[in-house]
Design a protein around this nucleic acid. Structure first.
Lengths: 218, 218
DNA sequence: TAGATTGTTAATCGATTAACAATC
DNA sequence: TAGATTGTTAATCGATTAACAATC
């Protein structure tokens, strides 16, 4: 039902920029701005103004006005709707160690449409405890509980040796999207969405850029 | 001195894939494999074989052999050298909260050429403590200590309100690369390398892909 | 009105993939 | 030798940027 063509037509690159626009617009709104130009957004976010206009046109229902720019409130509402920020989904987290605990503790994910309803771990010292209000279950119960809770999103923060097994357990329980923080390539069915948070890749890009900058100075 | 043309010519996309090749090759090496074909790598990592060959050609000193493939050990050494994994750099971390503590605790960064030598926080309850062997200093000492330690890389895991100030303090101390986990756009001089770890962007991409998959099933 | 800003078409840029001869 | 695999050139694909008429 309705407009789901948008999902196919909006590129990953554009989707990735939308949260930054959203944060920026919220900030401007808090400062009392009612309208904003693509030129201003582009300048502040170090983007190209045409790119900003194209991105916004893809997800927005209202057009910008020459000379005035875009209505801040409308844009925020459009991004909220497009990214599902107004429609929170449940998720479970597997691996209640340092990173997992930090993600649960962050809490801000609710603003991004994600609600962590349960955590899992294999360590007896963690099972049964509560992490920032989220109960930690034994990983043996993962598949069963995920199925019962009807959860579609799993966050993987386990050591790499445990990642594939945990991913399989999530999928068995009916999870269809996995946010993977473990440094491993997961083998999963094609109809499962996977997003790898590859810290090593980020670090590699950063350190090569640093090396380039330093070498240009000599 | 030497071959620094490589830095400019290897694309960010390629650099981002290198850590995955590295992990994969280490795994194969542990399994006793001496050689590997681009076809095999591509299949296992869900990439295109030509892309794999092009990536490897950019950073490798030794050619692959028709019928045999590439020498695993040589490739690992080449990636080690190219990404600086054999040449650890010091870094400081600002923000010793949940995420910061998790990153320090991970410890695995040393394998990726990064050594966290000090942490900073503004909370009196954290200052003076030790985080997985790393001392937590008062953020007021940040600039001075960074300068004294001659550190070039800073990791930002502070709340977003504190991010710009902390980034400025890092730069004042001589830091030239910032790995930013705070959900804000930092305004910094052009000759500072910044890598934003935008969790909201990743989550947006994942959840749109999930929505797409689910809508295709109906 | 004049000019800042929009939306769109065309040009450019960069990265991925296909095709294929060379070769171990 | 035959065939799997390489390295490279050409084609394609997708995303970014430039140019510019429309308009508030």
């Amino acid at each position: 039902m309705g407009n789901n063509k948008e999902m196919a037509t909006v590129s990953k690159a554009t989707i990735g920029r939308l949260p930054a626009y959203h944060r920026y617009l919220k900030e401007k709104q808090a400062e009392g701005e009612r309208t904003i130009s693509s030129t201003a957004i582009a300048e502040d976010l170090h983007l190209n103004a045409v790119q900003v206009r194209k991105d916004l046109a893809l997800i927005s229902s209202v057009a910008g006005k020459p000379k005035l720019g875009f209505d801040v409130e409308d844009l925020i509402a459009d991004i909220d709707r497009f990214l599902g920020y107004d429609n929170v989904s449940d998720a479970v987290l597997v691996g209640a160690g340092g990173l997992g605990s930090a993600l649960v503790g962050y809490g801000g994910f609710k603003n991004y449409g994600l609600n962590i309803v349960a955590a899992f771990d294999s360590s007896p010292s963690l099972v049964g405890t509560t992490l920032h209000g989220v109960h930690v279950f034994d990983v043996g119960e993962l598949t069963r509980l995920v199925r019962r809770l009807n959860v579609r999103i799993g966050i993987l923060t386990v050591p790499k040796e445990a990642a594939q097994g945990a991913a399989d357990a999530l999928v068995s329980g009916g999870v269809r999207a996995i946010w993977n923080f473990a440094p491993v390539h997961l083998s999963l069915p094609a109809n499962i969405a996977v997003k790898n948070e590859d810290m090593a890749a980020s670090l590699a890009i950063l350190s090569k850029r640093l090396a380039e900058i330093l070498s240009n100075e000599k």
